[in-house]
Each structure stands twice: as C-alpha cells, then as structure tokens.
Design a protein around this nucleic acid. Sequence first.
DNA 1: GTCAGGTCTGACACCCGGTGTCAGTCCTGA
DNA 2: TCAGGACTGACACCGGGTGTCAGACCTGAC
Lengths: 192, 192
Amino acid sequence: MTTLRERTRQAVRDEVLTAAWRLFARHGFEATTVEQIAEAAGMSRRSFFRYFATKEELILVRLIEHDEKIAALLAARPATEGAWTAIRAAVAPIMESHEQHHDRSLALIRMMREPGLRSTIAERERLWIGLMAPLLAKRLPRTSVPFDQDPRPLAVAGAAVMALSSAQAIWAEHPDKSLSRLLDRAMSAFDS
Amino acid sequence: MTTLRERTRQAVRDEVLTAAWRLFARHGFEATTVEQIAEAAGMSRRSFFRYFATKEELILVRLIEHDEKIAALLAARPATEGAWTAIRAAVAPIMESHEQHHDRSLALIRMMREPGLRSTIAERERLWIGLMAPLLAKRLPRTSVPFDQDPRPLAVAGAAVMALSSAQAIWAEHPDKSLSRLLDRAMSAFDS
DNA sequence: GTCAGGTCTGACACCCGGTGTCAGTCCTGA
DNA sequence: TCAGGACTGACACCGGGTGTCAGACCTGAC
C-alpha cells in the first residue's frame, strides 16, 4: 500500500520524464539543459533535482525498466538451459520488437550512441551486468570455487552485453541487415 | 623531425601529468581539482585546459599508452594462433607485472574503480576495443561477410575486456588470489 | 638590431550540472 | 484547528569547461 505522497511524487516524476524525453528526441541529450526540462515540466531547476539526482537518471530509469524485463525473461528460462542459450533466448523478444518498430528503434539506438550519453550507457551496461550475472551463475559448468570468487558470471554477462552492443553498432550503420542475425553471428564467436 | 615548440609542449604536458598523478594517488581523482593540478604544475587553470582538453585526459593518456603496448604484443603473435589464444598470450606479461608489483598494482586498480572514474574507464575500454578488434578479425574463422558488417571482432574484443575487468574485480576484493588464474577462469567461460 | 607574425599566457566573464541553505507554503494526521 | 513534516522557489556557491582579450614572448625576415 502506497501513500498519497508517494503516488503524486511518482506522477510528477512521470511527467518530467515524458517532457524530458520529448526534448531529448527533438534536440538531443546534451543540447537539452536541465533548465529547459524543468520549465517544460513547470517547476524550478532546483526542484527538478529534488525528483532526479542527475540528468542522466532521466535516461537510465527508462533503460533499467527495460533491462529488468529481460532479466525476468532470463530467470524464467528452463533451469536446464546453459548460460549462452538462455541469454540468447531471453533477448530474442527484444530483437523482434526492434525489427518490428524498425525506424523508431533505429532512431533510439542512434541517439544512445551520442557521445554525451556514453557514460550513461556505460553505467547502464554496468547495472545490466550486475543484474544478469547472478542469474547466469547457476547455468555455468560447476566448479568448487565459491560464488564471490568466480569471475565467470561477470565475464559471461559482460560478453553478452558486448555481443549485443556490437550487433547494434553494425546495425546502426547497416539498418537493412537483420539484427537477430547480427546478434547470432556475434555470439557465434563465443559459444563455438 | 619535431620542432622546438612541440618538444617543449610535450615536456610541459609530462610535468603536468606527473604532478596530477601524484595528487590523484594522494587524494583520489574527484577530490583533486583542476585548480590544484594547475597550481602544482605552476600555471593558471585556464592554461591547464590549453594542454589537456579535460581532466579525464590525464588518466586516459597514460592508460592508452599502456593499451597500445598490449596491442603491439597482440599484433606480434604468430598468425596461426586463434583469437582467444593470441589475446590471452598478449595480456600475460601484464598479469605477471601486476603480480610482481602486487601492492602498487592493487592500489592502482582500486583507484580505477573509484565511481568518479567510471566514465573514464568506460571510454578506455571503448578505445581498447577499437584497437584490438581489427587485430582479432584475421584470427577468427573465415566467413563471406564483409569486414565492416561482421560484429564478431568487436564482440570478441569486448568479451576479452570483460574477462579482464571481471578478473580484476574479483582480485580487488581477494588480492591473495592469482590474477592470472582468475583471468584463465574468466576466459574459460568463452573458449570452451 | 628591429620589427612584424604568430604563440603562449593570465585574467575575467560566462555556461552548465549539481548542492547547501533558508524561508515560506502546503498537506497530512492527531 | 493546529503542529510537524514535506515541497517549493530563490539565491549563492562549487567544479569542469569555454570564449575572449590584452599583454608578454619567441621567431624569422629585413
């Protein structure tokens, strides 16, 4: 049960978010100042920072929601599946959705590659890895090494992010290619 | 042949770099202001920015030099070696050096994990991948896919970075472990 | 030697993201 | 209705980064 305060606060956050994303889409991330976002949302600059700690957070929040869905899909894969198979399957719906809303996804992915957003994207990948690694640990060949001393889950989650990211990098330049197929090709370099 | 101007400029850059790294080591990256660095190097804040575009660059420059040496080692591996074998071999001397200068390396690696340096490290990894990917391309199983449409080199370079990074993450917490062995264990999740 | 060109420098004002503080207002629950 | 906390705008400040200007400095040509 949430209090009224929390709900109104969330509503304000949502308003700021949609106002901000509209501005980002129109002018880009860096070119949009916090002042403009605050004004579009009808509040002072200072108040903006009472709802969001940083401008980056406006981007991150949405991306994290998205990533948590993927994590849920991964967790729902049958326990018998190996790490690579499971992660490939968990990510498949996203690939399909990207190819369905081709132009919108392409524009989004290209915006994400804006230099001013690099550190945000890096942070997103960091969080993504932290989210996926524990889910992958059980799907790796067993060892006697204790959890917190086994680098493999982090490495596999990281490699998966890199496969995705490199597939998207190629796709951004050659949007006629199939994103799913690019991802398969990228991952083929690991699983062998 | 370089001009006198270029050489003095380089000398000044070196002085600023050593002054800055001394301060970073003592107080950390974020806690050190550009003003302090400029003062330690005997110049104004404005002049500092005439030698380095950003404070990050002070960190990046040194890391990139380091990474270029690894790239050279990778390029020098026999052409018959596969991508994973070659990259593991190219990185081996670094691992040894880290274990030899155990405490200094550990302090350095821990400083690199400072939150304020995350975006810098991300940029470093980005550049590292760009450096390694073309060297790995020839060591992958041949396909009919043209160079610029093959995501595998980027993916493999990215995965290698992630293996390294996860090995270092574990090492930072368990410095008694062997870094080489951690890296082997991380990479064992790929090569199979 | 001197004079004109470009370079390097400090100083100052400014932008933007982010924070501390304060006083006033609004909301909630007793 | 009233006390306490939450929310707000305003303002001053910090630190990284940039544009600009005027003076010092260096260099090469005459």
